[in-house]
Every structure is written in C-alpha cells, then in structure tokens.
Design a binder for these strands. Structure first.
Length: 131
DNA sequence: CTTCTTACA
DNA sequence: TGTAAGCA
C-alpha cells in the first residue's frame, strides 16, 4: 500500500524517459497534451515523471503500435482506471469486514469466556469498543 | 547542456 | 511527427 506512493513519485526528467521508452520528447509532450499522462512539474516548469507515468507511456506506445488512435487509448485508460477504482473499493470493503469479524470474536470471548482464559479488564474493553 | 513553448513544414 | 527559434 506504500508502494503506490513510490510509484507516483515525480522522479525523472524527460531525457531519462525518452531512453526508458524509446519515445521522442515531442511524442511524450504531445501525449500529455492529449490528456494521456499528467507528469508533475518542477518549480522551473520542467516535467518530472513517475514510474507510473513511464509504465503508462510504454502502454501507450504498445497500443499505438497496434493501430489504436489517441482517442481509443484515452478510453482504454479511462476504463482501466475505473476497473482499478472498483478493485480498491472491493479491497476496502474486505478489510472492513475483517475488522467487524475481529470485533465480533472479541465480544464473543468477553461474553462467553472459555475455561482457563483470563477475562479482559475495563480498560481493555473500552479500548476495543470505543468506536 | 537540458528542457520548454510556439510555430511551421 | 520532426525541426528550428528563443527562453529559462
């Protein structure tokens, strides 16, 4: 989950990206103008690309080689982004369910302590059920 | 020297 | 898309 931040860090100037992708600066700037990528800028207005930007450029390149036009690629990325969003939501829902399960089990343990188990005191209880 | 924008072929 | 000009 912390990887996402790393992948979105503005790191490389356009010169590095041209070597990484085999695309010309002209092409890269044009794709940005077409809304296919949104690299950050330095205080001096220079573009700084992230790993995600580079990956996306490589993706754009392969789509272009397969004969898909800019408009088509824009839609592909849009849909792909929606899929990722749905995935994140599903993941979040899953974790919330897990927490509810944990709470339920804790409550169960407090209400019906098993033999040999030390009951939780008030401090611990309030900590677990504060929310 | 690298990058940026703008304009033209 | 390539290239040139004039800046930063």
């Amino acid at each position: 989950m912390k990887d996402e931040l790393r992948r979105n860090m503005p790191l490389f100037p356009i010169g590095i990206v041209t070597k990484l992708t085999e695309l010309t600066p002209r092409q890269i700037r044009y794709y940005e103008q077409q809304g296919l990528i949104s690299p950050e800028r330095t205080k001096g207005n220079q573009r700084l690309f992230s790993f995600n930007d580079v990956d996306r450029l490589l993706q754009i390149k392969s789509y272009l080689e397969k004969g898909i036009n800019i408009a088509g690629i824009r839609e592909m990325l849009k849909q792909q982004q929606q899929v990722l969003e749905a995935k994140r939501e599903a993941e979040t829902a899953k974790k919330e369910l897990s927490e509810r399960e944990l709470r339920r089990m804790l409550k169960q343990q407090i209400i019906h302590p098993r033999r040999g188990q030390i009951p939780l005191n008030h401090g611990e209880l309030s900590r677990f059920f504060r929310h």
